[in-house]
């Protein structure tokens, strides 16, 4: 099996993507952060560092909660997607 990128892996998952965003970041805080723990904590690669700022996309979120726990600056506004939306595991 060849090694696949996280994005390729997520393409196998079933999601019901909501129009409402359930996790958001406070870019003003992220800008001043040096650690960027979120980059390594997120198993779905939802956080990206481009030049000096962090961007976040919620679509591939696996709802694990890692980002909220590792962010020691409280820059992540973390909630679950609305009922019935988000990741829907076929195997689990």
């Amino acid at each position: 099996m060849s090694s696949a990128s996280i994005e390729d892996k997520l393409a196998n998952n079933k999601y019901d993507i909501d129009k409402e965003v359930h996790v958001s970041i406070r870019e003003d805080i992220c800008k001043k952060c040096d650690e960027h723990y979120c980059l390594y904590a997120c198993p779905a690669d939802c956080f990206k560092l481009t030049e000096d700022h962090i961007t976040f996309s919620y679509e591939g979120c696996l709802e694990c909660g890692s980002c909220k726990i590792v962010c020691d600056k409280d820059a992540i506004d973390w909630t679950l997607p609305r009922a019935g939306f988000g990741i829907c595991y076929q195997y689990g």
């Binding site: 196998n12 998952n13 079933k14 999601y15």
Partner: peptide, 9 residues
């Protein structure tokens, strides 16, 4: 069938 199922499945 759920239309959000990835087509490859």
């Amino acid at each position: 069938p759920d239309p959000e199922i990835p087509p490859a499945k």
